[in-house]
Amino acid sequence: MIVRLLALALLLPVLFLAHDRIPLSGVPQQPDANPPRWGANSASWHRIVAGPLPGLWADQAILEIFNIYNVAKDKPSTERPQWWHLLSYQLHRALTLDPRFRDAYRLTEGLLAYEPGFSLDAVDILEHNARDAESGEYLLVASFLAHQDLHDDARAIRLASMAASKEDTSLLAAGFAARLIQRGKGCAAAIAFLQQRKRLLPEKYAGGIEKKIERLKQDPACNPEPAADMPETQAMPPSWLRGEASQS
């Protein structure tokens, strides 16, 4: 009897805390003045709640996003940010629980990113979760968003470089990264980046990368001399060019 009472006594505060801290479902019809924000401990809390079914809880977050969007889409623009905070929270939740969930990435880049004021959120979500994903597709999208909407080319270059270093990368990623590098750091750096990609990426990309290098060398805006004369020790690009993840 004492054991049962103790077990219940322990269970109650856990439920109380969980209820208080973890908004799981239920889309309010009126916007909340203080919508939940994704905090430092949110990921841990949600991993605990998901228990043995992280995938299913990630799926549930996506359904929640559909509900939020369904309620929010007809609201006046002044009210929309409240809903989009909720949406961002659920996207964080879905990708924390399942970092390979393509539906969540698609909704981040297709729904959150195009709401004014939420591009930064979208880039954060994509960068944080796609870093460990096998596909570079979402990092490339994040890079594009960083360049286009946030006008943060340093971040865009870093993201594009990370995208170009993934196994499934495409010439598009390498090309986009090179173009950004060319704009920000000059042709020499762009060519060095492409040469490094050529060495690291599978053979099938070599021809395409070579063409891009040639095109850059022939670009009148470029001065390929420094790159051509660069000694072997200097040819190694810095870490941001090597596509290594860095904390920003």
């Binding site: 079914l53 995938g55 299913l56 990630a58 799926d59 996506i62 359904l63 559909f66 399942d98 390979r100 969930f101 393509r102 539906d103 698609r106 909704l107």
Partner: peptide, 15 residues
Amino acid sequence: LFLIDLGKVLSDMLF
């Protein structure tokens, strides 16, 4: 109801 990862979602629900 889902967009892309249909096999993954069905597997989640089956588990």
